[in-house]
Write a protein that binds this DNA or RNA. Structure first.
Lengths: 200, 200
DNA sequence: GAAAAGAACGAACGATCGTGCTATTTTAAA
DNA sequence: TTTAAAATAGCACGATCGTTCGTTCTTTTC
């Protein structure tokens, strides 16, 4: 028989810790996340928290994984249930727009891009993989819209994805620096203008 | 007679320190910048460096000021020498694109937006002021292009500026995560498409 | 050149960092 | 219910953090 490596309660606690860590990382970034502070937030001892991950780096990677998991469930999966073409493409974009609003103090995934883009290591690798996954899924959704004739045949999918990324990053920034509602309206308008431009 | 608060050599050293601090902050962020590490980079003692700023927060603000100053000289001033309308608008955008490339390990100003957007305090205030300055200058350049008839009369300047911001942020991200040249080409194309869309 | 002011250093502070080690408590399987 | 394993706590470590203080060296002013 196989002996479980962890206990039910163990994984539950780990998930609880990751939730707190995600919230803390939203405000202070993954590099600003300390085990002592996390332990206080989780009402546990430092060593108790530490034992779940084995190192600070593993904790950071776990938080990234936690975020990627939730993003997938909240953005990708609903979008992939939409029908091919523009509906699915809009769902990807709007899902991300909503995600930006919901993560009120910032999305740790996007924040981590800025923290690790110039720092080689597993964290950067994870972030690159995440952004690459997004690009792949989005590019495919665009391609399908092209195949269905909803976008022009000469549409450059990479270019299109690049511009959606830009709209989202501007939304992400203006949401927290200035007026969230206005930022969202601008993002929506930019997206529709983009789609129109590539429509036949 | 007025007694100078600082010595010539003093300000020179301070500028040297800020240069190293800017470089360090490019890689580790303003929050990842430590005085001990900065002292090593400047080949000075910790207390020697510290005395120039009085606190870590003042050091961070000085680095932000240093970056804003250089950005103004490198991007805003050349652009304001271009003639009104699209030439000036393009100069603002391309100047920023170039700036992203030149700051190879990241622009501390843009990185600081992500570090401080959810953390009230002087650093956040400074970053907001900087982005607000950019928005103001860019919006005015757009307005002038409208007045000169180069852009449609019903052009929404805020919307336009929002989209330029997005293009730059996407460029900033893709430059360091993926292929810089491709990212730059995509940014240029996005900008031209944007201008075309708002042209009569 | 003397006197005053500023710049830089060295040492130390309390606090916190990540991490290890050992004990104790709690959970899951027999 | 006993027993082995896993989860958690407690404590201590060396390192580094920002900051303070007193001293020394260097620059400026008269």
């Amino acid at each position: 028989m196989v002996v479980a490596a962890t206990t039910d309660k163990g994984t539950a606690t780990r998930e609880m810790i990751l939730g707190r860590a995600y919230a803390l990382a939203s405000r202070k970034g993954l590099e600003g996340l300390s085990i002592g502070e996390l332990a206080m937030a989780a009402k546990m001892s430092k060593s108790g928290v530490f034992a779940h991950f084995g190192s600070r780096e593993e904790l950071q990677l776990a938080v990234l994984e936690f975020g990627a998991q939730h993003f997938g469930e909240r953005v990708f999966m609903p979008a992939l249930r939409e029908k091919r073409g523009l509906p699915r493409l809009r769902a990807i974009a709007h899902g991300w727009f909503d995600w930006v609003r919901e993560n009120r103090h910032g999305c740790p995934l996007l924040a981590s891009v800025n923290e690790y883009d110039a720092r080689p290591g597993p964290q950067r690798d994870r972030v690159v993989a995440f952004m690459d996954q997004w690009r792949g899924i989005t590019a495919r959704a665009i391609s399908l819209a092209v195949e269905m004739g909803e976008l022009r045949a000469d549409t450059d999918t990479r270019q299109f994805a690049f511009e959606i990324l830009g709209i989202t990053l501007a939304l992400n920034q203006d949401t927290r620096l200035f007026d969230p509602k206005q930022a969202r309206a601008q993002a929506d308008r930019a997206l529709e203008r983009l789609i129109t431009a590539y429509s036949r």
